[in-house]
Design a protein around this nucleic acid. Sequence first.
DNA 1: TCTAATTTGATACGAATGTATTAATTATAT
DNA 2: ATATAATTAATACATTCGTATCAAATTAGA
Lengths: 203, 203
Amino acid sequence: MKDDSTKSKLLKAAISVFGNHGYSGGSVRQIAELANTNIGAIKYHYSSKEQLWKSVVDYLFTKLSEAILKDSGLWPSMSPRDRVVNSTKNYIFFCANYPELNRIILSETIQNGDRLHWLAENHMRFFIERSTAWMAIAQENGVYPREISVLNLVFIAMSASQNLFLMAPFVEHAFGIDVFKNDQIEKHVDAVVKLLLNEAECL
Amino acid sequence: MKDDSTKSKLLKAAISVFGNHGYSGGSVRQIAELANTNIGAIKYHYSSKEQLWKSVVDYLFTKLSEAILKDSGLWPSMSPRDRVVNSTKNYIFFCANYPELNRIILSETIQNGDRLHWLAENHMRFFIERSTAWMAIAQENGVYPREISVLNLVFIAMSASQNLFLMAPFVEHAFGIDVFKNDQIEKHVDAVVKLLLNEAECL
DNA sequence: TCTAATTTGATACGAATGTATTAATTATAT
DNA sequence: ATATAATTAATACATTCGTATCAAATTAGA
């Protein structure tokens, strides 16, 4: 889907529009205009607004999976802590490169309708359960404090990674900082790792 | 505004509707119906949808301020760490009791329009700057690791507190857990404090 | 080249939206 | 009691929305 076909241009436009305005806030006319095409093309290629939205979510979750598993071939040769550091770093870079996914998820979580159920059943549940399993193992290996409930741990770690990029428009407006610049992302990785993960010598 | 006047019923209904559907997702008809009154009452008491929304935000930020400063009279007699623990706990309980505020803020951050600018200038900037100042002091006192940028620290700590309640609909749906129950809130306070704040003996 | 399938573009339609207007009702004060 | 103000209710209007329809244009295959 890297070509410049109308279908792919529509998908990219839809990522931007749904990511910046949510489902109900974004209109098919807006998407068609951004893709330099016509409203009829959406009906032809994706049949409806909802189907287009689902295609966007499928695409972004594929990218998420790729990002998280990027270095998984090296994991067996890493320490438990380095494994977590690596996946955390890759996850944070994904959050910075594709902030639209977390915005879409949050929009739907807030609305709490049928689309959230679809999201939960088709993508989020699997993602969270895998994260929970990994987190539990890391916890057993002393990477995270052992007394904390895994579920709370997962949501704390995930939100700590995401939030700065979700709030990017505000950070830009209030502090003039572009959190998407590479050094800012690295800085955030350091902050999350230093704050959430036990130091090696504390084990 | 604790009475059951039409104006106050409208405000309460608007908190719920804007909190659960965002600004563009919520309609004035929906609000009027929830308040058991008529759409004309909104125009009369609040003149427009946008003014009603601003009243909702003003109200919720007042509640936030009250919640955070609840025990501030005791702070002088507390250790720096206990001060942070106290304000963190009160903030987390606020996030659980008024999840609508963070949902509204996130909705607007995602949309990144005029309402976000209003939010930033009238409420958020002040709130974040105060948090940053407090956080810096706590950091100097060894409550947080000293190497981390204060801005990252603030956003990590805030999101760690908020996110579980923002994601409540998903947590309920996927795990059957009601994060708004008192023991779940306490559990989250423990998790955040244990994970983010240095132990006393680590100073 | 000619035909058939694919893709694109333009317009129409009912539903829902925020706002404005005006009438009906209730409350207040003299 | 009565007049004046305050509040509530009902309706109308222009706009925007997602969807559907259908003609025009383009492409692909024989």
